[in-house]
Structure formats: structure tokens, C-alpha cells
């Protein structure tokens, strides 16, 4: 079970959080002008990598704030947690 560093509360147990998939996917503007493929890309397609993943978390049983995390999906090592809207932190070169 992870320990997650909520940007607002600090380190807490994973049971207080829920994960909501890939981060940094903005909802498109003027959705009516999108092709089916573009809309489908937004609602259905995610990268699902084995390795470094920028993803959304919410401190559901805590401050209820949403934030982003950089996690290695193969090892579950979390390299960074950061506020929504902040730029992606760089992935470390060497990671396990």
C-alpha cells in the first residue's frame, strides 16, 4: 500500500486516495467542431505505459483536492506529486 504525498496535506496512506488515470489531458474546446476521431481520442484513448506515468489522484478521504503524480507503474515508485495546472515535472533519468 502506497504512501502518497498530498501537495496540500503531506504523506498519507493510499486508502485515503483514489486514482483517476492519465493526467494532462485537457477537455477540447468547441467540441462540436471535432471529428469523431478527435473526440474518441479524448474520451477513450490513454497511453497506459509500463513505466513513467503522469496521473491524476484525489485525496478523497482527506482534503478532497485533486492533484497530479508522476509514478512508475512497474515499480509503483512515486517521483513527484504536484498541483493541478503545474507543469509536468521531469522524469528522473535513472529510475527503478
Amino acid at each position: 500500500m502506497f504512501i502518497i504525498n498530498c501537495p496540500y496535506c503531506g504523506e498519507r496512506d493510499q486508502t485515503e486516495f483514489t486514482c483517476h488515470g492519465e493526467a494532462h489531458i485537457a477537455r477540447p474546446k468547441e467540441t462540436e467542431n471535432l471529428t469523431d476521431e478527435q473526440w474518441g481520442e479524448y474520451i477513450f484513448f490513454r497511453t497506459n505505459p509500463k513505466g513513467m506515468h503522469y496521473e491524476r489522484w484525489v485525496h478523497a478521504h482527506g482534503c478532497r483536492r485533486w492533484f497530479n503524480a508522476l509514478r512508475n507503474t512497474a515499480t509503483d515508485e512515486i517521483f513527484a506529486t504536484y498541483e493541478v495546472g503545474a507543469p509536468k515535472p521531469p522524469a528522473p533519468e535513472k529510475h527503478s
Binding site: E30, T31, E32, D36, W39
Partner: peptide, 13 residues
């Protein structure tokens, strides 16, 4: 309305 959540999906095949 120009947009609301789910609107664009009405046009999906």
C-alpha cells in the same frame, strides 16, 4: 447551448 458534458457524444455513430 454550445456545449455541456456529454453533448459531443450524441453525434457519435
Amino acid at each position: 447551448k454550445a456545449d455541456f458534458l456529454g453533448k459531443r457524444s450524441f453525434m457519435r455513430s
